[in-house]
């Protein structure tokens, strides 16, 4: 690896001051060091965020949960604040890489890398989460579904740091689910899908609100508005779920390459969306 300067600030302010254009923030390092080994990242200073205590916390906040950007995938997968509530997020955190990876990879790193296949991105989008970004002038919130601009590109500005993710309180009669399909390559999702469903207070078969997010089938993780519209206000049955799957499949923008054909990826969107909706629905009804 090319030599670099190393800084380990103890506070967020200190870190923000160090994040010059020549510097790169270090979270878990699982992706960064590979990029540095392969000379895909040219930075002369690495700012290690792991010594900033508040960035690693997972805590209850405003009825929901505030997850520090440096929270480990393993902590996320095991957190009792998340498990049982935000099932889609728990499931996704538990499938990122191997246990060795989950012991070092962070939520912030998974998001800030802006991989279209990032496993935690779609659950957070489905759960309506926001990213908290900080720079020297203050903090702002960016909905996770507006965080990604393209492969490797986020809405974070120069000098701005992803500090936390805020997941809103889970409403009553709501549930979420995460599905993914892995083919060929080791741990990279061919397609992933997260669904969030909130049921009507009067009719437990009717969907009051739905959010469906798809991963690895476009330049960024994406919401599928047509599938959500199809579900919202509908009484859930095979036909509606089938239609939502169709809508999701037509919103997907999968690539066609030697690993899989676009039509197969699109079909997997349909299948996984259907499965995720049913799972989320059953959880919302307290059946699973």
């Amino acid at each position: 690896m090319r030599p670099f300067h190393y800084r380990a600030p103890r506070s967020l302010d200190e870190a923000l001051a160090l994040l010059t254009p020549q510097a790169v923030p270090l979270a878990g390092g699982t992706d960064l060091f590979l990029k540095m080994e392969r000379r895909q990242t040219q930075a002369d200073t690495v700012v290690d965020l792991k010594r900033i205590p508040e960035l690693g916390r997972i805590e209850a906040a405003d009825g929901g949960v505030r997850i520090g950007a440096l929270a480990l995938m393993d902590s996320l997968g095991a957190s009792s604040l998340i498990a049982g509530q935000y099932e889609a997020l728990t499931r996704s955190a538990r499938v990122v890489g191997s246990i060795q990876t989950r012991n070092r990879a962070t939520l912030g790193g998974n998001l800030a890398n802006a991989s279209p296949a990032a496993d935690t991105a779609t659950p957070l989008m489905a759960l309506g989460a926001s990213a908290e970004a900080a720079d020297a002038t203050g903090t702002r919130q960016v909905p996770v579904d507006q965080l990604f601009l393209g492969p490797g590109r986020t809405a974070l500005r120069d000098g701005e740091l992803l500090t936390a993710v805020l997941v809103p309180a889970l409403p009553a009669r709501a549930g979420s689910a995460f599905q993914r399909c892995v083919r060929t390559a080791m741990d990279i999702a061919l397609v992933n899908c997260a669904a969030f469903v909130r049921l009507d207070g009067d009719d437990p078969d009717t969907v009051a609100e739905a959010r469906i997010a798809l991963g690895a089938v476009g330049p960024t993780p994406l919401r599928t508005a047509s599938a959500e519209n199809c579900l919202t206000g509908a009484r859930l049955d095979e036909r509606v779920v089938e239609e939502a799957g169709e809508c999701a499949a037509s919103d997907a923008q999968p690539i066609d390459d030697v690993r899989a054909g676009a039509d197969y990826r699109r079909e997997m969107v349909r299948v996984l969306t259907r499965r995720a909706i049913w799972k989320a629905f059953r959880r919302a009804r307290g059946e699973a």
């Binding site: 390092g29 699982t30 060091f33 590979l34 393993d74 890489g97 191997s98 246990i99 060795q100 990876t101 012991n103 070092r104 080791m186 741990d187």
Partner: peptide, 19 residues
Amino acid sequence: EVCGSCTVLLDGRPVSACT
């Protein structure tokens, strides 16, 4: 960081020493 052959325990948790 895929094969795990360089696994060591950091504070008792397995991590890959190669990355």
